[in-house]
């Protein structure tokens, strides 16, 4: 089962990207969703409430998928372990 990486601050994404295995999932939440609006080589997920609150809905890049809390819960059940990056 792949690892779920939850990144909540933009500066932490770099370290997470270096470390995460190719098959792992990276979810941006809180302030890290700002990174969804800049080019990214890797496919990322971003939490919808945080994207919408920050006015980023139209600025999310093509290889970023926006997910809601139900999908967030699902990600937790389908990955192990879960690591947070701040």
């Amino acid at each position: 089962m792949a690892t779920l990486h939850i990144v909540n601050k933009s500066p932490a994404l770099a370290s997470c990207l270096q470390t995460a295995a190719l098959e792992d999932t990276i979810l941006l939440i809180e302030d890290a969703v700002y990174q969804a609006s800049v080019p990214t080589e890797r496919k990322l997920l971003a939490l919808t409430d945080d994207v919408d609150a920050r006015g980023l809905k139209a600025r999310v890049r093509r290889n970023v998928s926006v997910v809601d809390y139900d999908e967030f819960v699902n990600l937790v059940t389908t990955h192990q372990p879960i690591v947070s990056w701040r």
Binding site: T3, T19, P81, I82, V83, S84, W85
Partner: peptide
């Protein structure tokens, strides 16, 4: 090597 190190764990404490 850290991606695999992490993935071998049941849980991670930050």
């Amino acid at each position: 090597a850290q991606g695999d190190l992490i993935n071998a764990m049941n849980a991670v404490v930050n």
